[in-house]
């Protein structure tokens, strides 16, 4: 191994996720900042779209496969593939391989790809061994464990550890932070009344926690909870955890105007 290879920075392909791309680009820029601060080089392939969950969870395997092939092609050249979402990272890492099982050309390729995929916060903590971030956030926060990140990827301690290193931040845990918020992708529009009953219980525990800001690692869940909090007239603000870890909280919180 020569000197340049030894010092070459790991190359990370950022899988932006469609919700971040469309609704909250600041999460993407926060992710870039955090990954770069961890000593990596970040690239954003322009041919990425969505991870395919809407099709996958609706039983449409053919479209899911086509979308997965597109993602794999776009990202397989990087050292790591990182997404600021537990559910999209879970899709790429845990579910893509099952789509191609037994396929002579794609099976190995998909497995190699899946091995490189990480959710943002666990990538920083577990892979890059980041133990603290250089950020300041004056205020109290509460953290919701989004389901896929928690149960498919084991993300729970990492965000809390990194948040503990943010200056000025106070953590106020909610009751049952590991209970689903009722989003569930297409579930929330297919079964709006049930989804609503679930998110109502969630926002109750969020308000009880008494924190100023709600954080989570998945924009889908955050838009669901923020949308409900807003409808209830609550003053609790919602942000993606990456925004606070990167110290990029100048933008208004999710669902709040004022620019």
């Amino acid at each position: 191994m020569n000197a340049t290879e030894e010092t070459r920075k790991p190359r990370v392909g950022l899988f932006v996720t469609c919700l971040v791309d469309l609704f909250r680009p600041v999460v993407g820029f926060s992710a870039v900042k955090l990954i770069e601060a961890a000593g990596c080089e970040v690239d954003v392939p322009m041919t990425q779209t969505c991870c395919g969950q809407p099709a996958y969870n609706s039983g449409d395997r053919a479209d899911t496969r086509a979308i997965a092939e597109n993602t794999i092609r776009a990202f397989e050249g990087y050292d790591y593939v990182v997404a600021p979402s537990g559910s999209c990272a879970g899709m790429l890492k845990k579910h893509y391989p099952g789509l191609f099982r037994g396929d002579p050309t794609w099976e190995k390729r998909t497995e190699a790809f899946a091995a490189k995929v990480h959710e943002l916060v666990s990538f920083l903590a577990d892979e890059m061994k980041v133990t603290s971030v250089a950020a300041r956030h004056d205020g109290s926060v509460t953290y919701h464990d989004s389901c896929s990140g928690l149960r498919e990827l084991g993300i729970s301690a990492q965000p809390r550890a990194l948040l503990a290193s943010v200056e000025g931040l106070t953590m106020r845990e909610m009751r049952d932070p590991d209970v689903c918020c009722g989003f569930g992708g297409t579930f929330c529009v297919k079964y709006p009344d049930i989804s609503n009953a679930i998110v109502e219980k969630k926002t109750e525990t969020i308000r009880e926690a008494g924190a100023e800001t709600l954080l989570a690692g998945d924009l889908g869940c955050l838009m669901n909870m923020a949308g409900k909090l807003s409808r209830q007239g609550s003053g609790v603000e919602a942000r993606h955890v990456a925004e606070v870890l990167a110290g990029m909280t100048d933008e208004p919180p999710i669902g709040k105007g004022g620019r």
Partner: peptide, 29 residues
């Protein structure tokens, strides 16, 4: 201005019970 939508065409399943946060502006890409 408001930061979210109370109603939006084709998004009734969502906005029946919650507001829809508005996009920040131009896409990340």
């Amino acid at each position: 201005r408001k930061g979210s939508f109370g109603t939006l065409p084709l998004a009734g399943g969502w906005t029946k019970h919650r507001d829809l946060p508005s996009p920040q502006g131009r896409t990340f890409l």
